[in-house]
């Protein structure tokens, strides 16, 4: 339908068309719009002159500023590396006792470590390294593989049951599944294990049977007195710290099915300096905080 009329409100003419009751005014484009077009286009053209922008046949316009995002990043990375190097090179070359002796360097370690820990170790060992079922508490002083500097550094370097050729190997045999012990024997020895740390007080008959089973099957790794062996990663069964758990059901599962803790190797993922920072974090920074 054709209507050519004036809108009483704005005084503008309509275009003369109508669609199911909708009409359009012929208002001119507001000046602000032209200004905005001018400004944004001017800015765009300016950018085209300054920055790499338009493709040519085999190359592109490089821009007057001569910026190149690749070089920019490379430069920033190099600058950051130079920055780190002041302390990083010292950590890489000095041994842990020397680093510990330097308060300032230890302050840097304490500053750098949490993010490194959070991005690499926290998922398994927890926020403050207190672990969880299957993942050891690293601040409890009950070490599977030894808590001296070299042992901890070595564990972090090669991991446990990992893909590293020198990996530490942790093997808790599957006594039940492997048919070495019956279910009853497993229950007996489990009760005996509990009694080692005072969690159970079995009658004499059970204790003796348990002690015998333990001596025959377990002592080779866990030691005659059950205090473990850090060269095998066999935990101390007489203390209050448990990797998998001390209740009867968990103990039964551990002895029946065996356990093979897995800790990745970090040699190719973290630099030596970073591994040292983490060892110091676990051995010094965290215990001091707690």
């Amino acid at each position: 339908m054709s209507v050519d009329e004036r809108d009483p409100l704005t005084g503008h003419r309509t275009t003369g068309h109508e669609w199911n009751g909708i009409t359009e005014l012929n208002t001119r484009v507001p000046r602000a719009v032209w200004w905005a077009i001018g400004l944004t286009h001017a800015w765009a053209v300016l950018m085209w002159f300054l920055l790499p922008s338009w493709p040519l046949v085999t190359t592109y316009t490089k821009g007057l500023l001569g910026v190149d995002q690749r070089q920019l990043v490379a430069g920033q990375l190099a600058a950051a590396a130079r920055d780190h190097d002041q302390w990083m090179s010292r950590i890489a070359s000095e041994d842990l006792p020397t680093i510990r002796g330097d308060k300032e360097l230890m302050a840097t370690v304490a500053e750098v470590a949490p993010a490194l820990w959070g991005d690499n170790c926290q998922a398994c060992h927890g926020r403050v390294a207190t672990g969880g079922p299957g993942f050891p508490d690293l601040v409890d002083k009950s070490w599977l593989w030894g808590g001296d500097d070299d042992a901890v550094l070595e564990t972090i370097r090669v991991g446990v049951n990992s893909a590293h050729p020198d990996t530490r190997t942790s093997q808790m045999l599957a006594f039940g599944a492997g048919g070495m012990l019956t279910r009853d024997e497993i229950r007996t020895v489990a009760t005996y294990v509990q009694s080692l740390s005072g969690l159970a007080t079995p009658d004499d008959a059970t204790r003796q049977a348990g002690a015998q089973l333990f001596a025959d099957n377990c002592a080779s790794c866990h030691g005659d007195d059950g205090t473990g062996d850090t060269s095998l990663g066999a935990p101390n069964l007489t203390d209050a710290f448990w990797l998998y758990g001390s209740d009867s059901e968990t103990l039964f599962r551990t002895i029946y099915g065996g356990r093979h803790g897995w800790m990745p190797t970090w040699e190719s993922r973290l630099s030596e300096a970073q591994r040292k920072i983490l060892a110091l974090y676990v051995l010094n920074v965290l215990p001091e905080k707690q």
């Binding site: 905005a36 944004t40 790499p52 493709p55 190149d68």
Partner: peptide
């Protein structure tokens, strides 16, 4: 390539109007 990014950025600004 960075030049494609510059184009995308400038046209996005012109698009605002």
């Amino acid at each position: 390539p960075q030049w494609v990014q510059t184009l995308g950025m400038t046209f996005s600004i012109m698009l605002l109007v």
